[in-house]
Design a protein around this nucleic acid. Structure first.
Length: 324
DNA sequence: TTGTGTTTTATTGCCTCC
DNA sequence: GGAGGCAATAAAACACAA
């Protein structure tokens, strides 16, 4: 490498240049305290001569001219201090060293300074600034990672928020249906009690035991009046009423709900206006276990025996067991 | 060429550690 | 108390558009 060769040649040259007796006063300047103007950086000009844009070659010119007299050199070294950038080769060398270890022990500092023809303080400053740049970069990286993580969490949060809203509106919709059902049941009971009263009025005075009339074959309607209504009669009556405006009530699910008689347990998704996909989605999104703890407590082992099966078929029960 | 923004080198002041 | 590290800052060097 020509540049590398030039670099080592110039380094050697510089090391020699600081030695001559004529530069003896300069050495004392180079070794001056940190508070004094630092002139050691002038040695760097030689590196910039390899192609550095900032090079004005004044160092060498100064020495060339120096042969003609001391005034020129004095003039050069008394001009205001100017910063000199390190050459690409010096920077490369320092970078490699930094990669190995970003802290600088005194021995390493001295060695680096010697190898590069720099003042140990310059090497220390370079490492100091390099650590600062590394820290800044690291902070930027950390920020980037955190930002990505934040964006991801935000996206998830928004999805969950939408899902929550959807569930909320479904719950509201279903609550409305439950209320409507309760209202219908109330009307039904009113109608039944009205019928009872009418039938009681039609009865003869209770001179004979009621059971006699049964034995006389009055029919099941009479026995219903005395012993309380038979379940099937009531159920069929309810079905008659409800079926008139709710055709889908005739399926097993809804009739079972009615048989249970406790409307507070009624939970009936109206799937009549949904496609199969929507039903599937609803099944997964609508019935998370935490929403309906009562259902969680119910025994689904035998839907026909359980008083808390809510009229759902066995395949329906599967919907309640999915993990949210 | 010049104005302006960025990068690099160097200083200063403060803090911690031995 | 001195050495060394760090943050903040100054200032020179550099890049680049107009």
């Amino acid at each position: 490498m020509a540049a590398g060769r030039a670099f080592s040649d110039i380094t050697a040259f510089l090391r020699n240049q600081t030695a001559p007796p004529t530069s003896q006063p300069l050495d004392s300047l180079f070794l001056s305290s940190s508070t004094a103007p630092f002139l050691g950086s002038r040695s760097m000009m030689s590196f910039e001569g390899e192609g550095g844009k900032g090079c004005n070659g004044s160092f060498f010119r100064a020495f060339d001219i120096d042969e003609n007299g001391d005034e020129c050199m004095d003039e050069y070294f008394h001009q205001p201090e100017k910063k000199r950038r390190l050459s690409p080769n010096q920077v490369q060398f320092l970078e490699k060293s930094f990669e190995e270890e970003n802290k600088l022990e005194p021995e390493r500092k001295t060695k680096l300074a010697k190898d590069l023809g720099l003042q140990p303080r310059q090497v220390a400053i370079w490492f100091q600034n390099r650590r600062a740049r590394w820290k800044t970069k690291q902070l930027e990286k950390d920020y980037e990672i955190l930002h990505e993580s934040y964006e991801s969490l935000k996206a998830n949060y928004e999805i969950l928020l939408k899902e929550k809203d959807k569930l909320k509106s479904e719950v509201a919709h279903l609550s409305e249906k439950v209320l409507a059902r309760e209202k219908e049941e109330g009307q039904l009971k009113q109608a039944e009690s009205g019928t009872k009263r009418l039938q009681e009025q039609d009865q003869e005075p209770p001179q004979r035991p009621v059971l006699d009339s049964v034995s006389e074959g009055e029919g099941s309607k009479v026995s219903c009046v005395v012993g309380g209504c038979k379940q099937e009669d009531i159920s069929s009556a309810r079905s008659d009423i409800l079926d008139s405006d709710s055709p889908h009530y005739t399926d097993g699910v809804h009739s079972a709900v009615l048989e249970h008689g406790d409307s507070s347990y009624v939970f009936e998704p109206d799937q009549s206006d949904m496609s199969q996909d929507e039903e599937d989605n609803l099944s997964k999104s609508l019935y998370p276990s935490y929403l309906f703890p009562k259902l969680e407590d119910a025994d689904y082992s035998d839907p026909t025996e359980s008083s808390c099966n809510f009229g759902f078929s066995e395949e329906d029960h599967g919907l309640w067991n999915w993990e949210y």
